[in-house]
Computed example of a mutant assay.
Amino acid sequence: MSNDQTGPATHPCGLTPKGLERQKRILDAAREVFIEQGYDNASINDIMCRAGGSLSTLYRLFGNKLGLFEAMMTQTSNRVFSAFEAVECAIKRQETPEQALKRYGHLMLERVLSPEAVGLYRLVMTDCSSERERIQALFYEQGPKRINDKLSAYLQSQVDQGVLKIRDTDLAAFQFLEMVKGNFQLRAMLGMPIGDHERDDAVDQAVELFLYGAAPRQGG
């Protein structure tokens, strides 16, 4: 008799499917509580009441409150960036820089202005806990920098092919994304509505300024 299957399948991190589901419930509950109450006020007991399970499970999986926050940020970031991976594949289908930048700009706004992202941004910007510097650094690495790195890599590929001429693609990526974002993130934090036409106009104008500048185009 074969003994290939001696127990439940395990994930590379060592968790069984049941363990992974338990972990996901805790992280989802943690996201809700952190966004609602802020890092400092968030209660580990409240999180586990929502997720179900024991405190010993939480400490075994994440170590402490900061470890839980870091894991939650990583999970959220990975989910957000699965969409950017799809865009990267689309960009490789020989799109023009104008098409690629518009696609990237629209997706960036969709993600940055989602209620979840706005909630996390508010949490990080208003946090006054002793872990503030670590929380803000983590957010920056998992959010803005990760978005920028992907766009910078695309711009560099266009420079290498001679399609674009950019002195610093990392800086250029930040400049483009800030043009697209404008004051939308602040308005979203203040609960002000943002129409689809505003997003479309912001992306279109950012792409036009980024690629062609503000001077009249020859023959235009």
Rank of each mutant, 00 (worst) to 15 (best):
G7F: 13
I147W: 10
C49Q: 14
Q218W: 14
Q37D: 14
G105P: 11
E32L: 13
R22K: 07
F34E: 10
S129M: 02
V159I: 01
K181F: 06
L61K: 12
L186R: 13
S82V: 08
P193Q: 09
S129L: 06
R199H: 12
G63F: 00
S56W: 07
T126E: 13
L101M: 12
Q136H: 00
Q218Y: 09
Q185K: 04
Q218N: 02
E141Q: 15
L15N: 05
I166D: 01
L177N: 07
L20S: 07
I44Y: 01
N45M: 12
L186F: 13
R31C: 01
D46N: 04
S130G: 14
N183I: 04
L66A: 00
L68T: 03
Q205I: 05
R31L: 11
P97N: 07
N183S: 15
L61N: 02
A214V: 06
V87W: 06
E21M: 08
L171C: 08
S157M: 00
Q23M: 08
L177I: 03
I26R: 14
L66I: 07
C49H: 09
S82K: 07
R122C: 03
Q94Y: 02
E198R: 04
C89E: 14
P193V: 02
E141V: 09
I47G: 12
P12L: 08
L66P: 10
M125K: 14
S43V: 04
T74L: 14
K150M: 15
E208T: 06
E85T: 15
A117F: 11
H11S: 11
G38D: 04
S130C: 12
Y104H: 03
R146K: 15
F81R: 12
N78F: 01
D149A: 06
D40H: 03
K92E: 15
N41H: 12
V33Y: 02
L15V: 11
F34T: 05
L55W: 06
V124L: 13
Q175Y: 06
A9C: 03
A29P: 09
R31P: 04
E95Y: 05
N45R: 08
G52N: 04
T6F: 13
L151G: 12
N183D: 15
M189V: 15
Y140N: 09
A215T: 08
Q218R: 13
R31D: 11
D160I: 00
M125V: 03
N45D: 02
D160N: 14
A83F: 09
P216G: 00
A214E: 09
R167Y: 05
R217P: 00
M108W: 08
D168S: 01
C49T: 01
I194F: 02
R22Q: 15
F139S: 03
G195T: 14
Q161K: 15
R199Y: 03
L190V: 02
R25I: 13
T169D: 03
R146D: 05
G7W: 01
Q161N: 06
G19E: 09
E208P: 13
M179S: 10
S114G: 09
P216M: 09
R146N: 08
G213F: 05
A206I: 07
F210L: 00
V87K: 05
Q205K: 10
H106C: 11
L58F: 04
R187V: 05
K181S: 15
